[in-house]
């Protein structure tokens, strides 16, 4: 294990217990704990922390793999259209009111993610072209976005409207072990799938043609990417809604600490993504905000946009 991974694991080992103490009710392990402390930890904060780790790790891995696959540091898991597809599924379950049944919303989201993945595989077909693949993803994303807007504009009740809008902002509040049961197998399977693509992504560093000359099968790689990104992003959106920027920022933060090969970026991005989401979620919980707590998706966008701007400015100065 590299030093970077050891450091990130140590930080996670430190952050997880601390995150269990933070929240509207602060738990002080040195003082007397309130009577309901155990319930707060096991039923509210622990599932939430586990979800943050799963979603953050999954999005981090998806972002690192996407940037490697598209050979572009500005790529983001949203580009493939899988996140918007999953969100569209979730929005439809809210729109029809079916989301009141347990499991329905995540189920719809996964169907949406699966449909986006199938459409992507169908359009990109057997051609190995990454450009065609990206354009297909963007087309799916904009189609799903348009359908979501349609659903919002035709919302049957103001209640459904507010549900949809709130859900789209992404959050980990009020999640339970049920959500962990949905996200865990999907995100973990997705991360394993993406790790299996590591060597092929390394070969892609020198372009499509060289990768093939190094024995990489572009069709297999594309399948691994669709499955890996689909599982991680689909699983994440199903339980947490749209949480942007993690997949974009995390690989950037980690890349200078690695040797630059995409395969070496995957595991640190999983760990750093998990850490980032855990910390961001804790901050959302403890920030005093009238009428509830800051939505995680909003918080990350607020953090992410300036970061992205700084990145662009650095690139501009590098070019000048």
């Amino acid at each position: 294990m590299t030093r970077l991974n050891r450091i990130l694991l140590a930080l996670l080992a430190l952050a997880v217990p601390l995150s269990l103490l933070a929240g509207r009710v602060w738990l002080d392990p040195l003082a007397d704990l309130p009577a309901n402390a155990l319930i707060i930890i096991t039923e509210l904060r622990l599932p939430r922390a586990v979800l943050a780790l799963l979603v953050g790790g999954g999005l981090g891995a998806a972002g690192a793999a996407m940037q490697g696959y598209l050979r572009n540091p500005l790529a983001d898991p949203g580009l493939f259209g899988i996140a918007p597809g999953a969100a569209l599924g979730a929005v439809l379950s809210l729109w029809t009111g079916l989301a009141a049944q347990p499991w329905t919303l995540p189920g719809f989201a996964l169907i949406g993610a699966g449909a986006a993945m199938a459409l992507l595989a169908l359009i990109a077909g057997r051609s190995g072209s990454v450009i065609l693949f990206t354009l297909a993803g963007m087309m799916i994303a904009s189609l799903a976005g348009a359908l979501m807007s349609l659903a919002i504009s035709l919302a049957p009740t103001p209640f459904a409207l507010s549900e949809i809008v709130t859900w789209l902002m992404g959050a980990l509040s009020d999640r339970s072990w049920n959500d962990v049961a949905i996200a865990a197998p999907l995100c973990l399977a997705g991360i394993v799938t993406l790790l299996a693509a590591g060597r092929a992504l390394d070969a892609l560093t020198l372009g499509d043609e060289v990768a093939r000359s190094l024995g990489i099968n572009p069709a297999r790689l594309r399948l691994l990417m669709i499955a890996g990104v689909g599982l991680t992003v689909g699983g994440s959106v199903a339980v947490a809604g749209i949480i942007g920027f993690v997949g974009l920022i995390v690989p950037h933060l980690v890349r200078p600490l690695t040797d630059g090969r995409p395969s070496q970026l995957l595991v640190p991005s999983v760990l750093a993504g998990a850490l980032l989401l855990l910390i961001a979620d804790c901050l959302c919980r403890v920030l005093p905000l009238a009428g509830g707590e800051l939505r995680l998706g909003i918080a990350l966008s607020l953090l992410g946009a300036p970061f992205f701007l700084r990145l662009l400015l650095r690139m501009r100065n590098g070019l000048a």
């Binding site: 050979r71 572009n72 060597r199 070969a203 892609l204 560093t205 020198l206 060289v210 630059g260 090969r261």
Partner: peptide, 18 residues
């Protein structure tokens, strides 16, 4: 050949071992 990431010479050469 466009080298997508800023690898060191040694890491780049090592890609030949894939």
């Amino acid at each position: 050949a466009h080298v997508a990431w800023d690898l060191s010479v040694e890491t780049l050469v090592a890609l030949g071992r894939l």
